[in-house]
Design a binder for these strands. Structure first.
Lengths: 184, 184, 184, 184
DNA sequence: CATGAATGAGGGTTCATTCAT
DNA sequence: CATGAATGAACCCTCATTCAT
């Protein structure tokens, strides 16, 4: 109904469906049906499925990046490691909401979408470097900020996987406390 | 010899192809062609694509589990943390060879294969508990073995993701040294 | 000036695109884009793709007919066969510029456009009769002007096909000289 | 029903339909329906529409080439120009049966099928050279066999076009007589 | 006059699955 | 045991056409 919301609607529907059932398992018919438009209309706004996926990925990467930036800025104001870690861990659970789509996009990027992989690669490097700076500033790991930055990224992704597999209830509090103790 | 090898051949071909191009992007025709049999014969041995995937996953999970067990047993003989960590890290790069198929199977499990997800879930819990025991035995983290076991699993999966995305060359040596220093 | 040119613009764009990539391979979107208008506007001026094709064909047939008329009139002023033939052959290469669209229109006419076929039919008969008269007047073939007129038409169309297929460089000079010698 | 006739059946149905309604206007559904099989089966035998078209073209080119060869061989036995020409002209009406598909294939080749164009190009050159030799051998045009060979090819194609457009009843007898007189 | 948005029928293609031989 | 042939549902995508504004 509203003027320019069509692309946003499509994106929202795509994200919702693909997060639920996977990217390859979500057809353009599914998306069109979810939005309440015809397949033709969908193609009027997005000229291919890949275009939708790319826009979805951009949106997703932006959300995560913003979360990280905000997280680091907040950390900057206070200087205790406690808060830095707890904020990061808090963000992990936020990110966890996006975890499914995050994983699916990564698989898509790795298996069949070179362009997507390039974007993820760039973002991952960017994220890691931002973390590295903050680790150097706010933790005791001045000299090991480089390897630790890789580890922190890994931990987030790895926890997302475990949460997706619904293995065991992840003990966020204990993990958080442990990390704080270690980083101080 | 020959007849029993057919399923193994199919499994090997499936793993090879799916690791290269993804599970959804690998058709049964591709597999049959790779093995050098007809699609009909393939269906004689496996009654569906999902069956192949499940067997593949079983094989994959067994390989990883064996690697972990061997890793922990070796660690048991020596008691220094140094060796425990370096062995684990060595195994990570072994696992990295299986990393692609590991990720794809997880995505498949999460998006469209409940049975698969159950198997992964069981294995992940099993792995974590084994690690927890060893952490308690061989590192200084007697009291934090529980959260640390989650973290170690995360780190492995997370590093696999970064290696798949080909972001930056992972600094295994530095990571390894850092972990050893931390765990001691 | 401006408003009346719209149809001409559309026709010019259509001709250009369809000559390059074929009629069926040229969409109305392509044409609208080439003209720099919207598809809606295009439909304001032309109520269907077939209408565009028909107008294009009319324009095309008019161009060729004018070329032929001019050719015959020029021939009329001089009376040597030499000039008659060389003028015709010259015109052939002019026509060759329109050759692609000529062929495509004929195919379109034959396969899916009865109305178009009717126009071509009428024009071809008209052309042949004009040629017949001139052959009778200016060549030695007084009695065979009827079959020769069919042959001349054939030769032009046939040479166009060979030029489209880019078979061999057509030896226009030799062909021309041979025809002149024959007709005298 | 019969074992290996499926490809032949598909080819026959394709030729029939495409000759009637054009190549672009003939869908794979049409063909499958005409053969009495499913679209899936059609794809089992032909992996793309282009493959069908190419096979059709090969078959078509072979038929025409054989007709030409036979024609020239027959001409070789007798040495009179009369028979050479009348045989060629007879063959034209045979070719005319294939005329529609001939024209459509040429259009397809020129607009959207590079591989097809290459095959036509090769065949046209081959045909022209064969004609050139025969013209030199059996007609009075020893020195002009080169341009005359182009003209003869043109005449055939051009007459096909006129016959497709159903302009006027082509006066084969008169044309034939005229050509015989000219060539002797 | 002009437009952007919307549509639906149909296009070529893929593929897991079935089955007679 | 093994196969080639057959299938049909679903897929992504194209496009001429319509219409409210």
């Amino acid at each position: 109904m509203k003027p320019t919301n069509m692309k946003a609607n499509i994106l929202a529907a795509s994200t919702k469906l693909m997060a639920k059932q996977g990217i390859k398992n979500t057809s353009l018919s599914d998306i069109a049906k979810e939005v309440g438009i015809s397949k033709g209309t969908l193609y009027y706004h997005y000229s291919s499925k890949d275009d939708i996926i790319c826009d979805m990925a951009d949106m997703h990467l932006k959300v995560i990046t913003n979360a990280l930036i905000e997280c680091l800025q907040n950390a900057g104001f206070h200087s205790t490691t406690e808060e830095f870690v707890s904020i990061i861990l808090n963000k992990i659970s936020d990110i966890e909401n996006h975890g499914r789509i995050h994983m699916y996009l990564i698989c898509e990027a790795v298996t069949s979408n070179e362009k997507l992989r390039e974007r993820f690669k760039i973002k991952y490097i960017e994220w890691r470097k931002a973390l590295e700076l903050e680790i150097k500033r706010a933790t005791k790991f001045k000299d090991d900020s480089y390897p630790v930055s890789f580890l922190l990224i890994s931990i987030v992704d790895g926890l997302v996987i475990q949460s997706l597999l619904k293995t065991e209830q992840l003990p966020y509090d204990e993990i958080s406390r442990f990390l704080i103790d270690s980083l101080n």
